[in-house]
């Protein structure tokens, strides 16, 4: 028995070592850094390195830019995640109703943004959203609508970022939902038809609840992905206009890797991670469902 346990430990050891090297040690390092005022001057002379306790966190709490970044990030999460899930679900279900020979083409088309480089996508969208020459405003003009300044106005810029993020993200969910949809036995639909459920009833009472665990998983992935929003605003707007698209991660990047305030940046990183873990924990413990556990 004892021997068995040590053999087991041997098998998980590589994974543990990897976790330690790539997750725990950096995490503890970042946690430690966040309690100091580590920066360029500390690098020059270690006498300039102080442990300042939670000061970085207190600063964060009183930092307007941090609150704005939090708001920006939350907007993208709160608007973007449901939108992504909705589009993933709808596109997955709609693609099924397309004639088989076109299906692959549509699926690929919708999946392409997922595998494209974010930078390339952001650059294309910058052109699409150009106020004067962009395709988006051109189409709006055809509909007789105004020409909004997508990337120039703070409210629209965050919307534009959300649109780009969702557009890039939902194809992945679509593939996952498609696969999960195929797992639902046809008999369930047959049974429901015999029992008198129409198309909508079958969708709402069978398809959606059967996909719920998958959608829940996707929601977790999307929340954690969007919570770490970085590349889109970095390329599309550099966090502007007026800081309206500076996400928390972008703020952390700027403070850490542009202005070398590692202590302050680490505090943001720790806060980001803590919220993420909190979310995962809540998600785990509220996951109701027929798969039990």
């Amino acid at each position: 028995m004892k021997r068995k346990r040590s053999t087991g430990a041997l098998f998980v050891l590589p994974a543990l070592v990897l976790l330690a090297v790539f997750v725990f040690i950096p995490l503890i390092g970042v946690l430690g850094l966040s309690l100091t005022d580590f920066g360029v001057y500390s690098l020059a002379d270690s006498a300039n390195l102080h442990v300042i306790g939670a000061a970085n966190y207190w600063h964060l709490l009183r930092d307007r830019e941090a609150w704005q970044a939090l708001e920006t990030t939350l907007v993208v999460v709160v608007v973007g995640v449901p939108a992504t899930l909705f589009l993933s679900l709808v596109s997955a279900l709609m693609i099924e109703s397309i004639a088989e020979r076109w299906r692959g083409m549509f699926r690929t088309a919708l999946f392409v943004p997922v595998v494209c480089s974010t930078v390339a996508i952001a650059i294309s969208w910058r052109y699409l959203l150009n106020t004067r020459f962009g395709l988006v405003n051109h189409l709006l003009a055809l509909l007789g609508l105004g020409a909004p300044d997508w990337l120039g106005s703070p409210h629209l810029a965050i919307l534009a970022i959300t649109i780009v993020v969702v557009w890039k993200g939902f194809g992945y969910g679509m593939i996952i939902v498609s696969a999960a949809r195929k797992e639902i036995p046809d008999e369930l639909y047959d049974a429901a038809r015999i029992e008198g459920a129409g198309v909508h009833q079958r969708l709402l009472r069978i398809t959606v609840p059967m996909l719920a665990p998958t959608l829940g998983l996707l929601a977790l992935l999307d929340v954690s992905g969007y919570w770490q929003l970085f590349a889109e605003p970095y390329v599309l707007t550099q966090g502007g206009p007026l800081g309206s698209t500076t996400s928390l991660l972008l703020l952390m990047y700027e403070r850490g890797f542009r202005w070398w305030r590692w202590g302050a940046a680490s505090a943001i990183a720790v806060a980001l991670t803590a919220v993420m873990w909190l979310f995962a924990w809540v998600q785990r413990h509220t996951r109701a469902g027929w798969r039990g556990e």
Partner: peptide
């Protein structure tokens, strides 16, 4: 009414 070969009970209910 039909009883299916593999029951076809709705697993989420």
């Amino acid at each position: 009414a039909m009883v299916f070969q593999n029951h076809a009970l709705y697993p989420h209910m």
